[in-house]
């Protein structure tokens, strides 16, 4: 109806506008969904813990909290560290970013190492009843996420040396940092469930 007196293309928005936020939107949606797997495991843990006729494997009546607590402190603080890394990048302080980013990776790796030590010192296994299974399932599945996070950080670190890497925005770094916060929050819940609620 309008087309008779106007030249048709004038009011047509040109170009399929590049929506920059796609990757981030997609990633956030994915994380929400991923958190539900953890949520399912947590609920399973809670239900089994409350209702199982036998919980801890024979000869065990709890697990040590101290070392895991140190581990926890390190992982949680790394979430703050990564925030500063991101901030440096915003300020275009590239070397500052790389340095702090690398520190985060080290902290993450220390966490994995601590986890490994803890696993190797435990006297029960995956097959030791519901608790054994649940313990290794939760810490293992979370550990996989930590390792993934570290690898992704490594990738971002490598990319930061590529010329023109930040032309299209800092989406990669922002997503990895978000992922790291996510891994952190999951750990806090996990820590409360497994170590504090005994």
């Amino acid at each position: 109806m309008l087309s008779d007196n106007k030249s048709p293309t004038i009011n047509h928005i040109p170009g399929h506008v590049k929506h920059d936020g796609h990757n981030m939107t997609g990633f956030i949606i994915f994380l929400c969904s991923e958190s539900i797997i953890f949520f399912a495991f947590f609920v399973g843990y809670g239900i089994l813990k409350v209702t199982a006729p036998v919980w801890y494997p024979e000869g065990i009546d709890g697990i040590a909290v101290k070392e895991p607590l140190i581990n926890t402190v390190i992982l949680v603080s790394s979430s703050f560290v990564i925030y500063f890394a991101e901030k440096s990048l915003h300020k275009k302080n590239l070397w500052g970013f790389r340095f702090i980013w690398f520190i985060t990776m080290l902290m993450g790796s220390y966490f994995v190492y601590g986890q490994y030590i803890e696993w190797s010192e435990l006297s029960f296994s995956l097959q030791s009843g519901v608790f054994g299974g649940m313990f290794y399932l939760l810490t293992g599945f979370h550990g996989l996420h930590v390792i993934t996070g570290i690898l992704l950080m490594g990738l971002m670190l490598y990319r930061s040396f590529l010329p023109n890497n930040y032309k299209g925005g800092e989406m990669g770094v922002e997503s990895v940092s978000l992922f790291w916060h996510f891994v952190d929050v999951i750990w806090i819940i996990l820590f409360v469930l497994i170590y504090l609620w005994q």
Binding site: G44, L48, A52, P53, Q127, G129, V130, G133
Partner: peptide, 16 residues
């Protein structure tokens, strides 16, 4: 892998 989340032998719960 011999876990017992849903196996009664290790205290698991099939209804879960």
């Amino acid at each position: 892998f011999g876990t017992s989340f849903f196996r009664i032998e290790g205290g698991g719960d099939p209804v879960l």
